[in-house]
Nucleic acid binder design. Sequence first.
DNA 1: CCTCATCCTGACCATTTGGTCAAAGGAATT
DNA 2: AATTCCTTTGACCAAATGGTCAGGATGAGG
Lengths: 209, 209
Amino acid sequence: MEAARKPRNATREENLAVILHHAEKIFAEFGFKGATMQAIADAAGLPKANLHYYFPTKLALYREVIERIFTIWLEAADSFDTSATPEEALSRYIRKKMEISRAHPCGSKVWANEVIQGAPIIQDYLQTTLNEWTDTRIKVINRWIAEEKIDTVDPRHLLYMIWATTQHYADFQHQIVTLNSGNPLSDSQWENATDSVTGVILRGIGLKP
Amino acid sequence: MEAARKPRNATREENLAVILHHAEKIFAEFGFKGATMQAIADAAGLPKANLHYYFPTKLALYREVIERIFTIWLEAADSFDTSATPEEALSRYIRKKMEISRAHPCGSKVWANEVIQGAPIIQDYLQTTLNEWTDTRIKVINRWIAEEKIDTVDPRHLLYMIWATTQHYADFQHQIVTLNSGNPLSDSQWENATDSVTGVILRGIGLKP
DNA sequence: CCTCATCCTGACCATTTGGTCAAAGGAATT
DNA sequence: AATTCCTTTGACCAAATGGTCAGGATGAGG
């Protein structure tokens, strides 16, 4: 969000990246109030006072972390409407969201934590950007239904199902790993998960995956 | 978990219930570290020191809250295997889980928070009770597949989908309410949500809901 | 009215927390 | 070398937090 003033010195960029990376982990693990600046500083290998040089308050750091996650989510959203058919649109969107769950589990967890706690920070995002995005997708899905390309289904709940299932693999990662004998999902297991989710949802609305 | 020593005095029972009820809310809203004994005490309308009379530590109170949630979840699990057909078993299980999401959203949120944070408290539950429960259901689903009652599907991911979607309505309640113009889901909207989820999942594995 | 066990609570404490600040590097430009 | 701007950090503080404790309230049985 902040433009780097001196691109010549890469240290600023580096430090920002390191701080944000570890802040994401700590916030994911303890939530906003549970995370401490000291813990983030230790994880990042910096003195606490240095964090406050880059981010004046804990809230500012948290906000930055959240904003980055939101950006990633919006990009995944793009792959929804660059497709011709419902099959392609939905399966690409689901696959993309599964990939994000695997690549950025902590980001997803921070978002989940935030929403569970009533979204005190991102409330405006929900009301504006997410709300608008949802409305446009609902219209697309309703068009598919009108054109009899998919079965009748409440578009809103279809979207919720996709969000819930894909994010589950990030947010409940620990539970899934535990039920997988303590091992993280392998490549093929992730592939299987993606295929399973895609298969049930597509068939669930009358498509053939 | 603790037996009441003097059932004659109902005050103990009452206070325990009040404390646990409000503790669930506060823990759901702030996570374990974020919740404060003072906040729980205020919500329950009791002095903080009184909480420590009933629950020696914050952890003991949290553990009790978690255990109660787990009990409710296990009861929902029962409705899974008292049914004859896959249609009935799955639709009853999904419906039950949706009802729990509506009746006990805070409980679900506490569980979600706990799992997101790596389940430091309930790890043993995941490894024993939940793991065993999952294994038995997987066998049942695999039998359905062998008997060609449902399409081929990875039972594990089918279960994850059910958990994810149903719990989403509790854990992401705030997001759903926001996307519903700020209004909680009405009776008919909950019915619609349940039907939508059940419909997609059942059709997704070759059943007619 | 007395006894005794349970229940309640205001005051208190040690620790942790987010955040501040002044003084000290450091590197490029003049 | 002097200057200037950015960066770093140890020491510090006020507030909040989990937990303690001694003493007071309460009520049932005698």
